[in-house]
Design a protein around this nucleic acid. Structure first.
Lengths: 224, 224
DNA sequence: GTCCATCTGTCAGGTTCATGTAAGCCCGAG
DNA sequence: CTCGGGCTTACATGAACCTGACAGATGGAC
C-alpha cells in the first residue's frame, strides 16, 4: 500500500517514512503543494499525510481542491498548529483526521490505519457529501466551509444518513439511532425530523437530497 | 426475499416469522408436510426453514423428495431433537444447515444468511447484469454505480428476472414470487409491473432488456 | 426568581404515491 | 385478416408521508 507524505521538513518526512515502512507501508515524499498536486494526479495513493505549513502555500488548499473534485482519498492532516481553530479548519476542508505535532509514531500509524480501514464512511471522524462536511466528534456541520447550526435531533438524523449515504436507511434504524434502546416514540417523530432537516439543509444551500423510499426509509445523496 | 417456514407450533412460527421480518425477509407459514410440498411447488422461495416434527409426517421426507427432484432450494432444519444422530440424518437428507431448539433468533438469521450467501447456490448477496447491480439484502438497485430507487413491486420483478438472467421465467413464477401464497391477483398485474420496470430501467439508462416470450413469460438479458 | 428563545414530541389536515384493476390499442402468429 | 396475448395508460383507493401548529420542556440571560 502506497502513501503520499507532503512535508517540507526533510528530517521529519524521513522519520515518518521510515516509521510507516516499519508498519508495512511504502511512501513517496514531496515537499510542496505543487508537487503534491502533481503526485496525486499521477499516482493512485491509498492515503495522504499532509503537512499544513509548506513553502509555496497552505496544504489545506490542496485538500480543498481534492474535495472539490470529489476525490475521496483519505487525508490525515499533520501540523505544528494545534489550536482548536486549526483543527476545525482541517476537518472543515475535508480532512479525515488530524494530528498535532509533536506526535508519537504509534499514534500516527493507528490513526492512519483507522481511516484506511473504515468501510465507506462508517467510522470516519469526518463525513463528506457534496458541499456538506460533518465532524462526528464535535457534531458540527459545515456547508461550503461555513459552520451551520442545526439542532441536536436533526443532527443525529443527518449523521446516520450521511454515514450510509447512497444507501437506504430503514426508518426503524433512524429511530433507534436517535432514541437508543430505552426511549420509545409514539408518533411520527422521525418524519418530523427529516422534514425539519430537509428544510434547514435547503435554507443553507446544501447540495444534498434526502430521498424517501416509501414503506422502507430514507436515503441521502448528492443533489442531481 | 421470500422464505417458507414449515412449523406446526403456531406461536413459534409467528415468532420466527417476525424475527425474519425484522431481518428483512418476508415469509409464508405452513404447518404440515402436505402444505409444504404444495407451497414449494407453487412458489419460488429463497429458502425453507423446516421443522421435523410435523402432525402428518416427518419433515425430512419433504426434504428428501426435494433433493430427489434436484431442487437446490436451501433448507435450514429446525427441530427439538438435538442429538448427533438427528443432525447427521438431517444433513444426509440434504439439509444445508441444522439448528436445535431452543435457539437464539440471531443465530437462526446468521445461519440462514450463511446458506443464502453460499456460492454455488442460486442466491448470492449481489447480482450483476451489464451496468446493473442489485443487492439482495437491502433490495437496492445500482445503475452505473449510482443508487436508483424503484418501488417495491418492480424491485421484486427485477429480482427474480435477474436471478434467472438469460433464462425464461414463467409469468406464473413471477406472480408467485411477488404475492406468495396468500395474495391472489385478478388482473394483469405482472404485465403492468414489467411495463413499469422497463420504463424505469430505460429512464435510468440500464443496459438490459426484458424479452417477452409469448404464452410463457419473460427473460432478462444484456442489451445488444 | 422571571423572561425569552429554542428545542421536542405530538397531532391533524392535506398531499403524494404505490398499487391493483380495467380498458383500449398494439402486434405477432397463423 | 383475425385472434388472442401483451402493452400501456388511466384511474380509484388507501396507506404512507409531509408539514404547520401547538404545548410542554429546557436552558440561558438577567
Amino acid at each position: 500500500m502506497r502513501l503520499l507524505i507532503v512535508e517540507d521538513n526533510v528530517e521529519l518526512s524521513k522519520l515518518v517514512a521510515s516509521g510507516l515502512s516499519a508498519a508495512g507501508y511504502e511512501s513517496d515524499i514531496v515537499g510542496s503543494t505543487a508537487e503534491a498536486r502533481e503526485a496525486v494526479h499521477n499516482v493512485s495513493y491509498a492515503a495522504m499525510i499532509l503537512d499544513l505549513g509548506l513553502p509555496d502555500g497552505d496544504g489545506l488548499s490542496v485538500l480543498r481542491e481534492l474535495r472539490r473534485q470529489m476525490e475521496p482519498l483519505p487525508v490525515l492532516v499533520l501540523t505544528a498548529r494545534g489550536g482548536v481553530q486549526d483543527r476545525v479548519n482541517g476537518l472543515r476542508s475535508g480532512a479525515d483526521d488530524y494530528l498535532a505535532k509533536p506526535f508519537a509514531m504509534e499514534e500516527l500509524v493507528a490513526r492512519l490505519e483507522a481511516i484506511l480501514r473504515r468501510p465507506g464512511q462508517l467510522l470516519g471522524r469526518s463525513l463528506h457529501l457534496a458541499n456538506l462536511v460533518y465532524d462526528t466528534e464535535s457534531r458540527q456541520i459545515f456547508i461550503d466551509d461555513k459552520p451551520r447550526i442545526i439542532s441536536s435531533r436533526e443532527t443525529s438524523v443527518l449523521e446516520i444518513l450521511l454515514r450510509r449515504q447512497g444507501r437506504v436507511v430503514p426508518k426503524k434504524n433512524v429511530e433507534d439511532h436517535i432514541f437508543g434502546l430505552d426511549g420509545e416514540v409514539a408518533s411520527n417523530a422521525v418524519e418530523v425530523y427529516v422534514s425539519r432537516l430537509r428544510k434547514q439543509l435547503a435554507e443553507h444551500g446544501a447540495k444534498v437530497v434526502i430521498h424517501t423510499i416509501r414503506g422502507v426509509g430514507y436515503m441521502m445523496a448528492e443533489e442531481k
